[in-house]
């Protein structure tokens, strides 16, 4: 057998080695490129401290596990999965007393929050933070901004009003009085909701409400909407004296007819009696 070359085996070995090296180099550069170019995950995962999450899990197992399942996967006909709902959803539902639910009904209603999670008390606020950190650690999701109260009110309530009428008024009425939906459900009054709760509701779309991401309504637009809601709340913006329910032409028309017309007829009778 004639070898092709006296350096045959060596050449083959070299070729193999260089092949392996080239492959290794290629893979390494791919990996480097990948790590360099891959963007950070879009959803911010609250990696928070493990103790907080553990405390949150404990609280979850005490109050929520029956309906939402031991792994937040939800329970058929009881409660939805909480994976990916985010800190904002937990904050909204628990701080407004909607969760834990008193009973299965058309929709969860606002009530005083469970003392364990009352954000007004120090302990309640800490528990709420732990519980939402636990849910946030499982799938991430929207997060309520750290700012609270007046810091969440925008500077332009007039634009907020415009956006409110375009996006919210169909269900919540033009001054946030709420309104009926199908089969016993309803859009609630917005008066009792805090700025953070309104912000969280827009971000997460609780129950049957559509959700408004920051790309659909920017944070500034959300803050202007909150400024509008707060500026028409209750008897706050009511130079006329009485809002008559704030529901527009129905109540205003009834009052105009019964009080106004009766008054005018009475005045006419008085005039007639005088002369």
């Amino acid at each position: 057998m004639t070898t092709s070359s006296p350096r045959g085996p060596r050449t083959r070995f070299r070729r193999r080695v260089s092949g392996v090296l080239a492959l290794g180099f290629g893979l390494m550069s791919c990996a480097l490129l990948y790590t360099a170019l891959t963007p950070a995950p879009q959803v911010a995962q609250a990696q928070g401290d493990a103790a907080l999450i553990a405390k949150g899990q404990q609280l979850f197992n005490g109050n929520c596990v029956t309906c939402h399942g031991s792994n937040l996967q939800g329970v058929q006909d009881h409660g939805p999965s909480l994976i990916g709902v985010g800190q904002a959803a937990v904050y909204f539902q628990v701080s407004s007393g909607r969760m834990p639910m008193a009973r299965q009904e058309a929709q969860a209603i606002r009530k005083p929050p469970l003392p364990t999670y009352d954000p007004a008390t120090e302990e309640g606020a800490a528990n709420l933070e732990a519980l939402s950190a636990y849910v946030q650690a499982n799938g991430g999701g929207p997060v309520v901004p750290a700012a609270t109260g007046d810091a969440l009110r925008g500077n332009d309530p007039a634009r907020g009003g415009e956006l409110f009428r375009l996006n919210c008024a169909s269900c919540h009425n033009f001054t946030g009085r709420g309104g009926a939906l199908s089969s016993g459900k309803f859009a609630p009054r917005l008066d009792p909701a805090s700025e953070s709760q309104i912000y969280a509701a827009m971000l997460t779309g609780p129950q049957n409400m559509p959700k408004f991401t920051d790309r659909q309504l920017s944070p500034e637009e959300k803050k202007d909407i909150i400024a509008f809601i707060k500026s028409v709340e209750g008897d706050y913006n009511n130079p006329g004296g009485n809002p008559i329910g704030g529901i527009g032409p129905v109540s205003e028309g009834v009052v105009a007819f019964t009080v106004g017309l009766a008054g005018m007829i009475g005045f006419a009778l008085w005039l007639g009696a005088k002369s």
């Binding site: 415009e162 375009l166 996006n167 779309g205 559509p210 959700k211 408004f212 991401t213 790309r215 659909q216």
Partner: peptide
């Protein structure tokens, strides 16, 4: 386009603008 209250503020809609379970006019 979305309506932001100002006819001249033309906000064209991309699919990523809306979250799952959302609606806009």
């Amino acid at each position: 386009r979305a309506d932001t209250g100002d006819p001249h503020d033309i906000k064209l809609v991309r699919p990523e603008d809306q979250g799952a379970g959302s609606m806009q006019t």
